[in-house]
């Protein structure tokens, strides 16, 4: 039932987390442009981007079409599903994007993700 009243209270908007990997040859500035394009798409369709994050040039766990490293970037958006379809269509067309994933999340937060948090302070498990 919670999905239903969620639907009525917030319309068809839901929270999405989008992470993509860009080719290493691409400059970080260009990754910024890609993120800005996505922000534009989201704002055009009435959603809004809650939080964006750039993890930098990370080593990939395995080679993705010949590249060892990749620029990781994360976006948390609050939008309808049509916006997500549009974003994914753009990402597929863009050759610089090696891989991307969009996940529907229950709640959304502005704090840095685990990726940045763990690098800031060395927490010992």
């Amino acid at each position: 039932m919670n999905a239903l009243n969620l639907l009525f209270t917030r319309g068809t908007m839901s929270y999405y987390e989008h992470v993509f990997i860009a080719r290493p040859e691409v400059a970080p500035q260009q990754v910024e442009n890609i993120v800005d394009d996505i922000k534009k798409i989201v704002s055009d369709d009435g959603g809004d981007t809650i939080y964006t994050e750039y993890w930098g040039l990370k080593k990939l766990a395995y080679k993705i079409n010949k590249s060892e490293k990749g620029h990781y970037s994360l976006l948390r958006i609050d939008s309808s599903s049509s916006t997500v379809n549009e974003i994914e269509r753009i990402q597929k067309l863009n050759e610089d994007i090696l891989r991307f994933i969009t996940i529907k999340t229950e709640e959304i937060s502005k704090e840095p993700s685990v990726m940045l948090k763990s690098s800031e302070k060395k927490d010992v498990y």
Binding site: V19, I21, L60, A61, Y62, I64, R99, I101, I103
Partner: peptide, 11 residues
């Protein structure tokens, strides 16, 4: 499985 897809973990 998601981490493996995003090359955060090796297969």
């Amino acid at each position: 499985k998601r981490a493996r897809f995003m090359a955060l973990l090796p297969y």
